[in-house]
Computed example of a mutant assay.
Amino acid sequence: MRTAIVLFNLGGPDGPHAIKPFRVNLFSDKAIIRAPWFIRVWLSRLIANSSAKAAYENYQLMGGKSPLLELTEKQARALETVLGLDYRCFIAMRYWHPFAAQTVKEVKQWAPDRILLLPLYPQFSSTTTGSSLSDWREAAAAAGLAVPVTSLCCWYDDPAYIAATAALVREAIEDAMAQKPGLPLRVLFSAHGLPESIVKAGDPYQAQVEASSAAVMAHLADTKVEALVCYQSRATPQKWLEPSTVEAIAQAGRDGVGVVVVPIAFVSDHIETLVELDIENRHLAEQAGVPVYVRARVANDDPDFIRAVAGLVRRAQVPGLYQGGTACAKKHKDCPGAGMV
């Protein structure tokens, strides 16, 4: 059977001209700004304009654009190599090219026997996976793409994914230990934040981030390091999940412990790892007196990670919803698989 694998991710501007429209698209999404459309449109432009200069400067640090598309393409090609000729990967970004409508046409032209929708978000959130899946369904319906579809909901505790992540974290811990032998270390599992109101409304993201982090730490029990889950990239005035990564770094400075930052919710490098964590937060750590600051590598096209994703693909054989990990509790009603098992 010819299987089309659609890899979903956030997307990113492909040049300075795209920075503002990308951010407008992002903050116009009703899954992120949960307000009437006319307020949402106004807010998206207000947020994009208010931080336009800082956003432009940050993207300049990465050559004027996001590397996310190129890195996702590498993941796609690596995944095809592992899976073989009956599989082909397509990319659909949520807020910048290639959009779902364009990718739907490419998939339809290839004429697969089945489609697997595979969000590159291990932890489900209505603001990421949920939004991407809804966007795809609308585009597929408009294009008349009628092929059996399997939607991968989440894979936050998939054993192979956890093992691949733990190997990257161990590498970072060993780096930090080598810099200052004997120094106490704290692993900060830094995930993109969410407003608390979204989690209280039934989004499982926080619970899944905590589960991923705990599973990784179970692999690292012999390292005897402590761990904390924290959240980065606050973008609106609402109360967001706590503690923030900035607060966690400041506390590490007060406690005199080294820090290993793990971008637990990301599988590809982009502005939030390459600029926010590597540059801005590293500077904050220096100011706070943190004795060692190391950021763990994200997966990108790491062979163990690609093999883990290939395993998810091979197991997702039945049309409908497939969960790579444990089903969500019923209270997480925003998850399409809540309470299934």
Score class of each variant (00 low, 15 high):
M1S: 14
I5S: 06
L7H: 10
P21E: 14
F22W: 12
F27G: 01
S28Q: 05
K30Q: 13
A35Y: 06
V41S: 08
S44I: 05
I47V: 06
N49F: 09
S51K: 12
A52T: 04
A54V: 15
A55V: 07
N58T: 05
P67F: 07
L68K: 02
E80P: 05
T81H: 11
W96G: 00
P98W: 03
F99A: 13
Q102S: 08
Q102E: 12
I115V: 07
Y121P: 02
Q123I: 04
T128P: 02
A142T: 12
A143Y: 06
C154N: 14
P159V: 09
L168V: 02
E171W: 05
L183I: 00
S190F: 08
G193S: 14
P195K: 02
S197P: 02
I198L: 15
A201E: 15
V209H: 02
A221W: 10
A221R: 14
V229K: 00
Q232T: 06
Q232P: 05
A252L: 07
A252N: 05
G256M: 14
G258N: 05
I264Y: 10
A265S: 15
V267C: 04
E276S: 08
H283L: 15
L284T: 00
E286W: 14
E286H: 15
G289V: 04
G289Q: 15
V290T: 11
V309I: 13
L312A: 06
C328F: 06
K331W: 04
P336T: 09
G339H: 06
